[in-house]
């Protein structure tokens, strides 16, 4: 800052007037977003300060903000256990796998359903694909035992048709991740496809008509019109998924895992559950883990966003 003070003052005032004008011009927009913003401030931001419990000893009578600071004690406890770091690696491995093996399926579903020519069957099919979304993971897991267990359907077919000895699909660590991905696709892809289908519905129909006239093939149409039309949606969902690499999927892992797959299934959520499930209630500990997770997720999200922008896509963060 080398400019002389008088000049700075004047530009500041100018800037202020300008700002005031801009705000006045956009007053309707502010009114429009007011309810949403107020909701966020009250019901999302005030509770966020609860994360400071990670650095405090909660004393009920002193309140959330009066409780004494204890520094990094909660974090020391979290970091003392080697199993914590193992669980982070496990989480990242499973969730990175999801990005590769699960993420594309809803897009594929949406594209394929969109290509179905018979109006009625299209709706019926699409409805069917959303059904599994309503099954809880407890149910899916018990179905899986009947399908993939040693006495289950798949082993029955394998041994009946090829004489293969029963394979413990659910009891071998090496099958665990594939089972997680497959069941995830089975349960959620049809439901998640709805977002892409909505996005496809928004594509300008004239583009397709023009392509028709030009004699474009079906694949060309998908490649040059449909996919670019939903590119933004794909990117946004992808960035959000990256920003979620440290969390998610507890219900699924919890229900599909068992003592035989312990070592590949202990994600961060599972670790927290294990540490706290016997009933010791420790908000400081939970807050410390939550804060740590959120920070990592945020870093991942920012990286994903920059990368997305660097390769020419549109980022999420504008």
């Amino acid at each position: 800052m080398t400019g002389n003070p008088v000049k700075t003052k004047r530009t500041f005032r100018e800037w202020l007037t300008h700002l005031g004008k801009r705000i006045y011009l956009e007053k309707e927009r502010y009114i429009l977003i007011l309810p949403g913003i107020v909701w966020y401030i009250i019901f999302a931001y005030i509770p966020i300060f609860g994360l400071s419990l990670a650095f405090r000893k909660y004393m009920a009578k002193l309140g959330m903000f009066g409780s004494p600071w204890i520094g990094l004690k909660n974090f020391q406890r979290v970091f003392a256990d080697p199993a914590f770091f193992t669980s982070i690696i496990t989480t990242l491995r499973i969730n990175a796998g999801r990005l590769i093996f699960v993420f594309p399926f809803p897009i594929l579903f949406a594209l394929l359903i969109n290509e179905v020519r018979l109006g009625r069957s299209k709706k019926v099919l699409q409805s069917i694909y959303t059904f599994p979304n309503f099954l809880s993971w407890v149910i899916v897991a018990s179905i899986m035992i009947n399908v993939l267990g040693q006495r289950g359907l798949v082993n029955g077919i394998l041994s009946g048709a090829f004489g293969i000895k029963p394979i413990a699909f659910l009891g071998k660590p090496e099958y665990f991740r594939p089972v997680v991905f497959a069941t995830d696709v089975w349960k959620t892809a049809g439901w998640s496809a709805i977002i892409y289908m909505a996005s496809i519905s928004g594509i300008d129909v004239e583009q397709y008509e023009a392509a028709e006239i030009d004699g474009a093939s079906r694949l060309q149409r998908i490649w040059y019109i449909t996919l670019p039309g939903i590119k933004t949606t794909i990117l946004v969902l992808f960035i959000l998924a990256v920003g979620n690499l440290m969390s998610g999927g507890f219900d699924q892992i919890f229900n599909l895992s068992n003592s035989a797959t312990l070592k590949v299934a202990e994600t961060l959520d599972m670790y927290i559950y294990r540490i706290t499930f016997k009933g010791s209630v420790d908000f400081g500990f939970s807050s410390a883990v939550a804060l740590f997770r959120s920070v990592i997720n945020m870093l991942l999200l920012i990286v994903a966003d920059r990368v997305s922008k660097a390769v020419g896509g549109s980022g999420l963060l504008g």
Binding site: L19, R22, I23, E26, R29, Y30, I33, G36, I37, Y40, I42, F43, A44, Y45, I46, P47, I48, F49, G50, L51, L53, Y58, G63, M64, L240, G243, F283, S286, S287, A290, L291, S294, N297, M298, L301, L316, L317, G318
Partner: peptide
């Protein structure tokens, strides 16, 4: 988000997706 404060508000909203304070502060609120 080109209006004054627009970007700030948008980031503020995004941040809540990553951070949340848990059930106790919510209950106290």
């Amino acid at each position: 988000t080109s209006f004054p404060g627009g970007k700030f508000l948008f980031f503020g909203v995004l941040l809540t997706m990553l951070f949340n304070g848990g059930i106790v502060p919510m209950y106290l609120l």
